[in-house]
């Protein structure tokens, strides 16, 4: 089974690896895990006053597909409104990276991570749904 060019590219040169200040009011942190493969994914977003994501960072311990999924989603959410970012579906990630069926849950994890990050940001800033 061969992995796609996009996936390998994100795996070998992951974008936006790192951390943001989790205590900042402007930063939302999402932390999720996939016990089946021992993956842990931390995804952080920095949001400006207008609700636009100006920066995103991630740190993922896991397989190549999990790393590529989180790298890709940090690229996608930058410049987006938090509500838009919340709409990203795992199927879009899976399609873009051509994830094999056994790795679909890695894209689910990335979707759940961004949702958790947006949620954390909203909670910090008392923004209701």
């Amino acid at each position: 089974m061969a992995y796609s060019k996009e996936l390998i590219d994100h795996y070998e040169k992951p974008r936006n690896v790192g951390s943001l200040d989790k205590d900042s009011e402007k930063v939302g942190t999402g932390l999720v895990g996939a016990p089946a493969c021992g993956d842990v994914m931390k995804l952080q977003i920095k949001v400006d006053d207008k609700g636009i994501i100006e920066d995103a960072k991630f740190k993922t311990f896991g397989c190549g597909s999990a790393i590529a999924s989180s790298s890709l989603i940090t690229e996608w959410v930058k410049g987006k409104n938090i509500n838009e970012a919340n709409q990203i579906k795992n199927t879009e990630i899976a399609k873009h990276l051509a994830l094999p069926p056994v790795k679909i849950h890695c894209s689910v994890l990335a979707e759940d991570a961004i949702k958790a990050a947006v949620n954390d940001y909203k909670k910090k800033n008392r923004i209701n749904e």
């Binding site: 999720v32 895990g33 958790a116």
Partner: peptide
């Protein structure tokens, strides 16, 4: 049953694991 395919989101456990990683 522990549903292994579901996303796990207990922050206490995940933070501890992340620190160790």
């Amino acid at each position: 049953k522990n549903k292994e395919s579901e996303t796990f989101n207990d922050l206490e456990v995940l933070n501890e694991v992340l620190d160790l990683q």
